[in-house]
């Protein structure tokens, strides 16, 4: 495996009295798309939020570029180059699309070239550039959420179910944008329930169960082995 940009070593996270993460070990290789898979409620979203700092790890190491960020404030993690697209998209509904995008650039103004690139990837955002984000459709909000995370260069993206509930045409737009992001050298940790997207995008995969990573390997290996899929996730990718 290439030098990982992110490593989680024995990470435990509690939410109230619940022990959600129970010793997560995970590596995200540099420049690759790593799929984080597993059934509902096994701790995938909590893993992303723990990496981002929205939940604090009770114990364990979160090494980002070799530095332990487990006690670092959320904003410092973002400034260190981690982009986050939460499951609920985190769109600012009362702000315009433009204002949401401007906020995506914490280190300066939105670069015009990058803006052009993002608008070519997500043309609907250009159409509604001056409209309140709360008026966008679910798919457009999801596009905005991803485009905002991509508004400035980040080295690692944590993306939580970007295609959830979206029409196939928009899913392909999303997948294309993520592929482009990877081509630019970014590393991506992607939680995804849509297995065809996972198969198309993923280089490696980690499968979680009961708050732990129970399997890691190449995405191709997982997608070709139905027995493994059924054993790890209780269902076959073919079912999707």
């Amino acid at each position: 495996m290439s030098d990982p940009i992110l490593s989680l070593n024995a990470v435990y996270t509690d939410i109230a009295q619940y022990h959600i993460l129970q010793g997560v070990d995970l590596n995200v290789p540099r420049g690759q798309v790593t799929m984080l898979l597993g059934r509902n409620g096994v701790g995938k979203t909590t893993t992303l939020k723990t990496i981002m700092g929205q939940w604090t790890a009770k114990s364990g190491e979160i090494l980002y570029d070799g530095q332990d960020i487990a006690r670092m404030p959320v904003s410092a993690r973002a400034r260190a180059g981690i982009g986050f697209v939460p499951e609920d998209m985190g769109i600012f509904r009362d702000l315009t699309v433009e204002e949401n995008m401007v906020l995506g650039c914490s280190s300066g103004p939105l670069d015009p070239k990058r803006k052009d690139w993002l608008l070519s990837a997500f043309p609907a955002l250009g159409t509604f550039w001056h409209s309140e984000a709360g008026n966008l459709s679910g798919g457009q909000k999801q596009m905005l959420s991803i485009a905002r995370a991509m508004a400035e260069d980040r080295r690692l993206y944590l993306i939580d179910e970007p295609t959830k509930g979206l029409a196939p045409a928009i899913v392909s737009t999303m997948a294309e944008a993520l592929r482009e992001l990877k081509a630019q050298g970014a590393s991506i940790l992607l939680v995804e329930q849509n297995f065809s997207v996972a198969r198309a995008l993923g280089d490696s995969a980690a499968v979680m169960d009961d708050g732990k990573v129970i399997w890691t390997g190449a995405m191709a290996e997982l997608s070709e082995n139905k027995d493994l899929q059924e054993r790890l996730m209780g269902l076959s990718m073919e079912a999707h």
Binding site: M52, V74, A78, F84, G90, F92, L95, L103, G104, R148
Partner: peptide, 13 residues
């Protein structure tokens, strides 16, 4: 509107 998201974008709220 959403303080945690502002922090996740890199701002010290």
């Amino acid at each position: 509107e959403n303080g945690p998201m502002v922090e996740a974008l890199g701002y010290r709220l």
